[in-house]
Simulated scan of single mutants.
Amino acid sequence: MTTFPGSTRVEMVMGMPVSVDIRTALPARELTPLLDDAFAWLRWVDDTFSPTKEDSQIGRLNRGQTIRQIPELIEVLHRCDELSEVTDGWFEARINGRIDPSGYIKGWALERLSRALCNAGAVDHRITAGDDIRVRGSAAPGKRWRIGVRDPRTDVVRKVVFAHDLGIATSGGAPVINPRTGEVRHGMGFVTVIGPDLGLADAYATAAYAMGPLLARRFATDLSREGLYETLFVLPDGQEFSTPGFAHHSGAAARLAG
């Protein structure tokens, strides 16, 4: 099979291995600085938004200290407030008097990075950070990316998604707080949301997990009706439920197309 050249780099950022896989045929003199800039951006996001770093802007905000008026910080806090309203408070970055945008920030950062790579000419790429994945372009000439949706508890692949342009976010690998009680949500296996914006998919997956199975199915059905975001649920006992559009990316038709 014909393959793309390109380059892949993996570094530890945000406490996890992050992979940037560029398949576009670009010369090394362009690829190397692109990858340097990609990881510099992700480290800046971590240093700015991590709630556990004392000198991050979020850390300073939570302690009532002076913060810098960074446009990205204002954008993220505003978007988190919007997402809280859209999800009826099930996505909530302000819990117990503290701000923690973790349910949105990783997806947002990867989405921004993906757009930057496209603008720089690296239109064929896959970015992976934990359970968040953003793909664009092709994995090989004429071939869609093939992405395994893994159960974050067992690492078992439950579905395979084929796409040229998609964000895939999975919630359930780390504790999710029920914003109504302030306690960790139990009773869900994992939730995967796919759609055009990884930041929104990340937040929707977090919200759906926090809701619990019954409310989450209704929420996912409403999202699916809008035609942009599709959802897969796997319960602790292994039962699955997915919205109809999810099969368009993972069924036989998707495999033949990709």
Rank of each mutant, 00 (worst) to 15 (best):
T181Y: 09
G195R: 09
R144D: 04
G148R: 10
L198R: 09
K143D: 01
S171M: 02
R150K: 15
G189K: 02
P213I: 01
V149Y: 05
D155N: 15
F190V: 01
K159L: 09
G182K: 12
P179S: 07
V193C: 11
A203S: 15
I177E: 05
G182R: 12
N178F: 03
P179E: 07
V156S: 08
V191S: 01
G173S: 09
T181H: 11
R150G: 02
V157E: 12
I168G: 04
V184M: 13
G137D: 03
M211S: 12
P152T: 07
G167I: 01
D197G: 11
P179G: 05
G195S: 14
A163F: 00
G142W: 06
A201F: 07
T206M: 10
R153F: 03
I194E: 07
K143H: 15
V184C: 06
G212C: 07
P213G: 06
N178A: 10
S138L: 14
V191I: 15
G142A: 01
V184T: 15
G187F: 07
G172N: 01
L198Y: 10
P196D: 11
L198D: 00
F162A: 02
R180A: 15
P179W: 08
V149S: 01
P213K: 04
G148E: 15
P152H: 10
D197Q: 14
W145V: 04
A139D: 09
M188L: 13
V193G: 07
E183S: 13
D151K: 07
I194M: 12
